[in-house]
Design a protein around this nucleic acid. Structure first.
Length: 860
RNA sequence: GCCCACUUGGCGGAAUAGGUAGACGCAAGGGACUUAAAAUCCCUUGUCCGUAAGGACGUCCCGGUUCGAGUCCGGGAGUGGGCACCA
């Protein structure tokens, strides 16, 4: 490559080296080696058709790690695949009359080409796609395993129902309570659906978080809060005699974490979809209307919390278990049916929401907890304190009161201590076509049985018309639904729901270790490779995908599939890629590439009209603030795109895309290339322990070791932006060499330094690194196969340090003193200095603080 | 609304464990090279006062701990992510 020395043709160079890596199989993973295994995985993408900058970022981060670990001598597994089921394919089918499978396969092909052009070191022989019949087959086997192990069950659950399209809508397809396409008010429909018993593992999912040392704390906290373990009490409130109804039991069971506040109860509130609410709605129009009014908000916790607190009185009362006072029963829109028992006792003085509710409906507000902090007298007060107005609990603190009340309740048989979790079982049913079919049949005799293993996979029928608005295509298919039971010959219908795509992505990382095995999981290899050493993906998956994967791992482990109990040993969450947004005078969004800048004003490049520059946001098609990676790679090459992705922001934070930023990266890489091309070092051979005579060369060798150490540490800490800065600092040293007059030991020192530098930069810009490697004279080897350099710390020994002299904590000046003086020696050394004496003058020294090698601080 | 983060020059950011704030870049200004431009190279660049030496201020805001706070604690503002059928 590059016979023409005057120009760097990034696209040609990159293609050339990609082919070489491919031919030599540089990134294929072997299962039997003497090396230690290291599994790097980035979250696999949904095949939308084009990669976006978010992909470029996450896959660059993963690739730097994979290449770095390979150089460090690990046997690296770095696979890639496709999260291929999901709604966009069905939307495309609906809008463009293309089959979801064709659309998806076309997208995979495009995206694969685009990913390949980035030069990421994947082992493509392990590629899997979740819509592949083989993946479906293995996943269906897992489903049946779960079914047999009673980790799966059916129960009725609400879904958003669009009565025009006759279909279930996702939450994001419901906008302001209306269907996104039909615009009609969404109803709720109770459907029998499949649930995974994730709550059987609630406690393990919580306590095992502690073992995840290499996970970000914020993700662990989010999961902990999501699981939401609470210790409280379940309490029965007896319905008053005159209010008893035949179709319901004689009490209402509530759950509370604050049983100590029971004497502050002024009402009972039921969730609108509580069983009793449902019964009452049949004979009471007020209740019926209330439930109808709030129906579309039930599905969504955010909407429930944001809605104004409203309720309806049921005309029924319960008795307080201790005071025997009559307490009214309301149905309230802020009570969640999915948490606790779906009913609460309202204590307005000590709960924010109960307080608002009580004010609105003029219910008594009884203060029963006196705050420890006397300043906090405003109600509602939600903290702990000393009990008042509470009979036998008076003068007890909240903690004591809780245990007393629980034992009292137990005595009178009206309550007990209870641990609850906020976590709910996982509804894995989707009433959609483009998903993994659920391998279950319903036999005419009423039995629900899994499809016989010899009949797997159950595949989707191809002959489906998406243009008709008649609901779930599987349910309405003329023949697909109908089958017979293999064992009995009885007639049967297939399950027409498909699986949530989170099911697909909850075990793909285990499949990658042996993607074409006849069984879903290769136990031996899974145990050799898993848990994934480093998983990389977006923070938006902090709870659901990561929690579901953890659950799958625990479930499969409990079924003896393998021994490990967590899927991902290390987790790294990268930030988003953002860009400024632009709007024209009519508030239409404008693409950044259509905007030209003149004197800090912005104009549309075609119309010349003025354009507003607005704040930077996550790149999204809807706001047109996108930059297409394909164009960027075409213009600058993948290395420039990769280098910019790494250089400007810490990986976990948002990255601001700017054209000057990408230009800057490109300029730097071209400068590097020019520098190497002007060298004549091909024939120079260096020795590790060469005795250099010139200071300049000694310094270069020291700096080389210094930066090897620094850059290695930065990479280990995921501080890739810092590593880039250090790469540049390092190169600034050799850029200052006069390479036209270089000879003898100068050449040896430079070749040594440059050789190490190329290896250091190679995970970031692998194609350019190969090119430079060759230019430097290494014709028969690849930089991708080199070992990571090791810093010789003997070269980095520092003899003097700068110590800061402070008066009252303020910096006055800096002294150079010998390194590693003791506290006494430092005092001794510095106290003699005239400048310090001058600072103190006549004043009395109250205190001297010495931090060796750092601070000499006087308090006067 | 609830949970979780983030906030440092004109901009992106750096600052092991509480110890020299602003590394490395971008942009800008000045200069060199060029017939000219581009490219490249060199210099300057937190703010304010000062001719200078130097001084004061300064890490979203308010308060606290400390000899010393970007870093720790309490309160607040703004921005972003998640809230269970987007992936």
């Amino acid at each position: 490559m590059n016979e023409n020395k005057s120009q760097y043709h990034a696209n040609a160079v990159e293609k050339y080296w990609q082919d070489i890596w491919d031919k030599k199989g540089c990134f294929l993973t072997k299962n039997q080696t003497t090396k230690k295994n290291y599994y790097v995985l980035e979250m696999f993408p949904y095949p939308s058709g084009r990669i976006h900058m978010g992909h470029v970022r996450v896959y660059t981060l993963g690739d730097v790690l994979a290449r770095y670990k390979r150089a460090c001598g690990f046997n690296v597994l770095h696979p890639m695949g496709w999260d291929a089921f999901g709604m966009p394919a069905e939307n495309a089918a609906f809008e463009n009359n293309i089959h979801p499978r064709d659309w998806t396969n076309k997208n995979i092909k495009n995206m694969k080409d685009q990913l390949k052009s980035m030069g990421i070191s994947y082992d493509w022989t392990k590629e899997i796609s979740t819509c592949d019949p083989e993946y479906i087959k293995q996943q269906q086997k897992l489903f049946i395993k779960f079914f047999k192990a009673k980790l799966l069950y059916k129960k009725e659950a609400w879904a958003n129902w669009d009565p025009i399209e006759n279909t279930v809508l996702a939450n994001e397809q419901v906008i302001d309570g209306k269907g996104w396409r039909s615009g009609v008010k969404i109803e709720r429909k109770l459907l029998s659906q499949w649930f995974l018993s994730i709550t059987k593992f609630s406690n393990d999912l919580l306590t095992d978080l502690e073992s995840l040392k290499n996970w970000p704390e914020n993700v662990k906290t989010m999961q902990k809060n999501w699981i939401g373990k609470s210790v409280g009490a379940e309490i029965s409130f007896q319905i008053t005699k005159e209010n008893l109804i035949e179709s319901y039991k004689n009490s209402i069971l509530v759950y509370t974490t604050r049983p100590d506040t029971i004497f502050g109860t002024s009402f009972i509130a039921l969730a609108p979809d509580h069983q009793l609410s449902d019964i009452l709605s049949k004979s009471n129009n007020g209740i019926k209307e209330f439930i109808k009014k709030w129906e579309s908000t039930f599905a969504n916790e955010e909407m429930i919390e944001k809605a104004p607190k409203e309720g309806v009185f049921t005309n029924m009362y319960v008795k307080h278990p201790f005071t025997e006072k009559k307490i009214p029963i309301y149905i309230a829109n802020y009570v969640l049916s999915t948490y606790g028992t779906g009913a609460i006792f309202g204590v307005p003085a000590h709960d924010e929401r109960d307080f608002v509710f009580a004010k609105k409906y003029d219910l008594p507000i009884i203060k029963v907890v006196d705050p420890e902090d006397s300043a906090a007298q405003d109600l509602p007060y939600t903290g702990a304190g000393t009990l008042i107005n509470s009979e036998f609990l008076n003068n007890k603190n909240s903690l004591e009161a809780k245990s007393i009340i629980i034992s009292k309740l137990k005595e009178i048989n009206l309550g007990e201590k209870k641990t609850k979790y906020r976590l709910r079982d996982w509804c894995a049913s989707r009433q959609r076509y483009w998903g993994c079919p659920i391998p279950i049949i319903y036999r005419e005799d009423g039995e629900v049985i899994p499809v016989d293993e010899s009949d797997l996979p159950v595949l989707l029928p191809d002959d489906v018309d998406f243009s008709k608005k008649n609901g779930n295509p599987l349910n309405n298919h003329a023949t697909w639904k109908y089958t017979t039971c293999k064992k009995t010959g009885l007639k049967a219908v297939r399950e027409t729901d498909t699986l949530d795509t989170f099911f697909d992505s909850s075990w793909y990382f285990i499949r990658f270790v042996d993607p074409f095995n006849k069984n879903p999981i290769n136990k031996k290899l899974a145990e050799e490779w898993c848990p994934v050493h480093q998983y990389v993906g977006g923070i938006e998956h902090a709870v659901l995908h990561l929690l579901y994967s953890r659950f799958f791992t625990k479930a499969l482990s409990s079924l003896g599939e393998f021994k490990f109990k967590e899927p991902f040993k290390g987790l790294f969450c990268q930030g988003m890629v953002c860009h400024k947004t632009y709007q024209d005078s009519e508030n239409n969004w404008v693409y950044p590439e259509e905007v030209i800048t003149k004197n800090a004003n912005f104009f549309h490049k075609d119309t010349g009209n003025k354009v507003k520059e607005l704040r930077s946001e996550k790149m999204s098609k809807s706001k047109k603030n996108i930059v297409d990676p394909v164009n960027i790679i075409q213009k600058y090459g993948a290395d420039t795109a990769r280098f910019f992705m790494l250089s400007d922001s810490p990986p976990e934070r948002k990255l601001e895309w700017t054209s000057s930023g990408i230009d800057g990266s490109n300029k730097y890489l071209l400068k590097v290339w020019r520098f190497f091309n002007n060298l004549q070092l091909n024939d120079i051979i260096f020795y590790e322990n060469y005795k250099y005579e010139k200071e300049k060369n000694k310094n270069l060798i020291e700096k080389t070791h210094f930066y090897i150490d620094k850059i290695t540490k930065s990479l280990d800490n995921f501080q890739y932006n810092v590593a880039v800065a250090q790469i540049r600092e390092f190169s600034n040293i050799f850029f200052s060499f006069d390479i036209d007059n270089i000879k003898n030991e100068d050449s040896i020192a430079l070749k040594f330094s440059l050789t190490k530098w190329i290896i250091l930069i190679s995970p970031m810009v692998p194609h350019l690194a190969e090119e430079l490697w060759k230019v430097l004279g290494y014709k028969d080897t690849l930089v991708s196969e080199q070992n990571w350099p090791i810093a010789n710390l003997d070269y980095i020994k520092i003899t003097n340090v700068n110590i800061v002299v402070q008066i009252n904590g303020k910096k006055k000046f800096v002294y150079e003193i010998p390194k590693d003086l003791s506290v006494e020696e430092t005092k001794e050394f510095l106290s003699k200095k005239e400048a310090i004496k001058a600072l103190i003058k006549e004043k009395e020294i109250k205190k001297i603080i010495v931090i060796p090698n750092k601070i000499f601080s006087l308090v006067i």
